[in-house]
Amino acid sequence: MSEQDPIVVRCTPELTYRYAAGRYGSRFLRGLKEGRILASRCRRCPRTLVPPRIACTGCFGRMEEVVEVPPRGELLAYTQVTFPFLDPFTGVKRPIPYCYGMVRFEGTDNTFQYFLAEKNPANLRVGQRVRAVFREERKGEMADLVCLEAAE
């Protein structure tokens, strides 16, 4: 280090969090364990949303019902991620490339963002049908839903 170089001090505080999935999120994750996709429904609006949550996006009122929706839907947008970055969950670089997209499950009014089985974006198109793929041994966590694959 020369006399002119600025001095930089490295600091890496380690913080752990325990995020509460909440009442609605806990039901969604337990649904995944059973191989089911659950949504919350507001009868006033009416509106059905995945993942289930307490406040309706239409009227901000309480979403009273949690219902099962078909594990298939339409791909409304997608991307293939090809740049390296540190995954805040694992602390190491996230494996690339991978594709994910926004899927509207049948009977729902919003989209859900998740991994796609397809590795090549050239084979993806907006409007294509996809279905949920669950893993064999499920534990009630997001990873129970492996990905969404082409359904046609």
């Binding site: 969090y17 995020y19 999935a21 999120g25 994750l29 993942p51 947008a77 997608y78 991307t79 991620v81 740049f83 970055f85 540190l86 995954d87 805040p88 969950f89 996230r94 994910y100 997209g101 926004m102 859900f112 963002q113 998740y114 991994f115 997001m142």
Partner: peptide, 26 residues
């Protein structure tokens, strides 16, 4: 990007999202 990923839901969105880059790519 790591910091931006943490702006999103830890359970549903962080596993797939690659920060502002992929959000805007969508």
């Amino acid at each position: 990007t790591t910091g931006i990923v943490t702006a999103f839901d830890p359970i549903y969105e962080r596993p797939t999202l690659a920060g502002a880059v992929s959000g805007l790519a969508i």
